[in-house]
């Protein structure tokens, strides 16, 4: 990973439900472990800012959007499946042979 590459992650949730809290916690843990310091994480509550969900055309919550670096990626769910999250964030290329071919 390029040290200068900064990650911009937007997490859309609908209210502070247990599922939302789980997603925030999971994302924070993954970021700390794999992106230490090189990320900016924004949590957007759709119930408060529905227009933002409209703009991004979000259907499912929680939705994580990797806005930067390109390519843009969307991951939905409470992010409990860490490997899929890493795959979605393009952090998983060689290190996890179990996911090869998926």
């Amino acid at each position: 990973m390029n040290d200068h590459e900064k990650y911009l992650l937007k997490l859309y949730i609908t209210g502070h439900t247990p599922r939302s809290e789980r997603a925030i916690k999971n994302l924070r843990r993954i970021c700390e472990e794999d992106l230490s310091g090189h990320y900016e994480m924004r949590v957007i509550d759709i119930l408060e800012q529905p227009q933002l969900a409209e703009d991004e055309k979000i259907l499912a919550t929680p939705t994580l959007i990797k806005a930067l670096p390109p390519p843009l990626r969307r991951i939905i769910g409470d992010l409990s499946d860490s490997e899929k999250v890493l795959l979605g964030l393009d952090l998983l290329v060689q290190s996890h042979p179990s996911l090869q071919g998926k």
Binding site: T14, A60, T61, T63, P71, D81, K84, V85
Partner: peptide, 24 residues
């Protein structure tokens, strides 16, 4: 939306859709 294919990584619901409909 092209490029919006999402990866499913855990439990989700369609709360965002509901919120958007209610908002509209």
């Amino acid at each position: 939306q092209p490029g919006h294919e999402a990866i499913e990584a855990g439990e989700f619901d369609l709360g965002a859709l509901l919120a958007r409909i209610e908002y509209a």
